[in-house]
Design a binder for these strands. Structure first.
Lengths: 97, 97
DNA sequence: ATGTTATATTGCTAAATAACAAAAAAAGAC
DNA sequence: GTCTTTTTTTGTTATTTAGCAATATAACAT
């Protein structure tokens, strides 16, 4: 018999949700090589308002997917844990319809 | 220099989005052992309207995560590809904050 | 045929999300 | 100190999503 416990899925679901937006997923992929990039690079590439990118980055930071560091006037983002890449790879390899 | 191509991320992002809801993620996990379950089992466990579960299942079906088969009056759902589990495991293992 | 059971679909409303514009903060240059 | 640059935060609005209720569909029982 199946028993649903919402809490047990909430945090994980939030991580999936964070990755469930084209711009955010793309950002994560850009950081896949372990390198860091600054906010302005993303803004330039995506072609959307600074505020919008900043909000996407906040979501990725809050779910623990990214971390950031401020140096000078710029903020640099990186994957907080490279293992997120395994997840991406799993999905990319296995589940193309 | 980074270049954003939205289309390249759209389908993958949709899969993440589908998994980005507690109820849907839970359903996928219940199917993780490869067994199939019928809709009414999910309804009973989650404690939500039949229509609501049906809608969640539709989303999971449309993204290709689940497939279903009708037998008699019941509809049975299963993972369309067990490899989705690797993805779940990757996330569960690696990225707990 | 009618009745019943299991799912799906449609219409509706409330809540969440995405994007922008404008204002606020933080750091460096002067 | 003021000015500029980079980023975040705070409205605001349009779109999307989540859930329910009601209706429709499909299969079986009678």
């Amino acid at each position: 018999m199946l028993i649903f416990d919402k809490n047990s899925c909430k945090r994980e679901a939030d991580m999936f949700k964070a990755l469930g937006h084209p711009t955010r997923l793309w950002i994560v992929k850009q950081l896949a090589d372990g390198q860091e990039h600054c906010v302005c690079e993303f803004v330039e590439a995506v072609g959307v308002q600074f505020a919008t990118i900043s909000q996407h980055l906040t979501i990725l930071r809050q779910t623990g997917i990214l971390t950031c560091e401020k140096r000078g006037q710029s903020v640099f983002y990186r994957l907080s844990c490279p293992c997120i890449l395994d997840t991406l790879e799993c999905l990319a390899n296995g589940n193309a319809k």
